[in-house]
Nucleic acid binder design. Structure first.
Lengths: 142, 142
DNA sequence: CTTGAACCTATAGTTGCTGTAGCTCTTATC
DNA sequence: GATAAGAGCTACAGCAACTATAGGTTCAAG
C-alpha cells in the first residue's frame, strides 16, 4: 500500500495533481485509512504512470481518458488508440510548423535591431508595423 | 472616433478581449459617450494592433506590457526590447525542440502498431511502459 | 506520548481569453 | 417623434491543467 506522497514521488507528480485527477475521474477513488488518508495499490501506481507518460507526450486529459478506457478493455480494437495517437501527432506537427514560423520572424526582428533608443528600435517597429497583419485574421496565437 | 466593435473588426480581436485588455491595464480606459459606450481614437487602434501582433508572435501579456512601456518612452534604451525578444526566441526554440522529440516518439509508437486488440496495441504498451520514465523527472509536459 | 512530517478539505489563483444572461444605448428608417 | 435592430454594457462562469494557500488532522518514529 502506498500513500499519495509515495505515488507522487514515484511518478514525478504533485500530490495536488493526483487529487485533481481523482476529482475529474481520471484516477479512481482509492481506499482510505480509518483516519481518512488515501492508500493506493500498484495498479493505481501504474495507472498514474500511464497518465503522466501520456501527458509528457502532450496528450490532453480527454484523450488520456479514452486511452485508459481502451487499456482497461484489452479485447477492444486497437484502432481507436491508433487514431488518437495520430491525431496527437498531427497536432504536434501543426504546432511545430507554427513555432518555426514564429522563430523566423523573431530572428529577423532581432537580427535587424541595431540598438539605440526605443524610438529607433527595429523590434518595436516591427511590432508596431501593422501593415501586414491589421485586419487579416490568421489566428496564430498561442 | 471608433466603437469597440470597429476596433475589434480592424484588428481581428473579439470585443470581450478588448475589454479584458482594458481590465488588466494593457489598453487604457477610453472616453465614453453620454450613454456609457466606449469610444476610441487612432492611438488606441495602433496600440491594440501592437498587442495583437505581439501575441501572434507568442509574447506573453506581461512581456507585451514591457514592450508597450518601452514603445511609450522613445528615449529609453532599446536593449530591454531586444532582450525580451531574445527571451521569447529562446522560449520558442525550446518548445520546438521539445515538440520535435514528442513527434519522434509518437511516430515511433504509431509506426510500431500492427493493429489487433487493445491488449496487443503497441501504442498503449508504450504508454504503459514506464521503464524509462517512472521516477525520472524531466518535466516535459505542456 | 510527543513531535513533526505528511496528510486532509476547500477555495482561490494561474494564462488568456471566451461565452452567457439580462439588460441599455445608438442609429437608421418611417 | 416612434420604433426596432444591432451593438454595446456589466457581471459572472467556464476552459485546460494544474498550483498554491489556509487551516486543520493523522500517522509513525523515537
Amino acid at each position: 500500500m502506498h500513500t499519495i506522497g509515495t505515488l507522487a514521488r514515484r511518478t514525478g507528480t504533485k500530490v495536488q495533481t493526483i487529487r485533481y485527477y481523482e476529482q475529474i475521474g481520471l484516477m479512481p477513488e482509492p481506499g482510505r485509512t480509518e483516519g481518512g488518508q488515501r492508500r493506493y495499490g500498484d495498479v493505481d501506481l501504474d495507472r498514474l504512470a500511464f497518465i503522466r507518460h501520456s501527458r509528457q507526450l502532450g496528450f490532453p486529459l480527454e484523450a488520456i481518458r479514452e486511452l485508459l478506457d481502451l487499456s482497461d478493455h484489452p479485447a477492444r480494437d486497437c484502432g481507436a488508440a491508433d487514431s488518437i495517437a495520430r491525431r496527437q501527432l498531427r497536432e504536434v506537427e501543426t504546432r511545430i510548423a507554427r513555432l518555426q514560423a514564429l522563430r523566423s520572424e523573431l530572428e529577423r526582428m532581432i537580427g535587424e535591431c541595431r540598438g539605440g533608443t526605443a524610438s529607433e528600435c527595429r523590434v518595436l517597429e516591427v511590432l508596431r508595423d501593422h501593415s501586414e497583419c491589421l485586419a487579416d485574421d490568421h489566428d496564430a496565437i498561442g
